[in-house]
Amino acid sequence: MVTNRTSRVREMDKAYIQQREQELEYEKRKRRGLLRRLTAMAVIILALGSIGFVTVYAQANSIEEKKQEKIALEERLEQLKLEEKRLHEDIKNYNDLDYIAEIARRDYYLSKPGETLFKLPDSQSN
């Protein structure tokens, strides 16, 4: 059975419904734009962060290589200083007549007048 009753539910004003739908659509677009801006900013920040990380990593490797090179050069410097010291001693010795005479006797078997040199074999343990 169908009864014919007047409905108590009123239909809202169409202008208000359209305005509300437009407001909701504007909020959706606003939110979508915000998400796009945030995504773009995140991508830019991520790219800049990656570039910064790579730069810092490369510089750290370069610094480590320079430290290793510095250590090697310092060792070489010490060797050269020792060699320089030895060479200065050689210069001093070659200006000493007694040293020159000793070298002449040892290497060239020269002797002073009336002196006899004897060469003994080196003792080697077998």
Rank of each mutant, 00 (worst) to 15 (best):
N93P: 06
N4F: 05
K28D: 10
T39I: 00
I63N: 04
S125T: 09
Q68M: 02
I103Q: 12
K14H: 05
M41F: 10
I17P: 00
D90G: 11
K28Y: 15
S125M: 07
E84N: 07
L77D: 13
R105K: 13
N93S: 03
T55H: 08
M41Q: 15
N93K: 11
K85S: 06
L73G: 01
N93A: 05
T3S: 11
R31I: 09
Y108F: 03
V54R: 05
L117G: 10
R37H: 10
V43E: 12
Q19P: 02
A42D: 10
Y99H: 10
Q59T: 07
Q19T: 04
V56H: 07
N126A: 09
R36M: 06
I91S: 04
F118L: 15
Y26V: 14
R8I: 13
R29N: 13
V9M: 11
N93Y: 12
K81Q: 03
Q18N: 15
V56A: 08
Q124P: 05
A101W: 13
L87E: 02
A40S: 05
D98K: 07
T6S: 14
A104D: 14
L38C: 06
L46G: 15
I71E: 04
E21M: 08
M41V: 08
D98C: 02
T6W: 08
R105C: 03
A40R: 06
E21T: 08
V56D: 02
R105H: 03
L82M: 02
Y94G: 01
L24P: 01
A40Y: 03
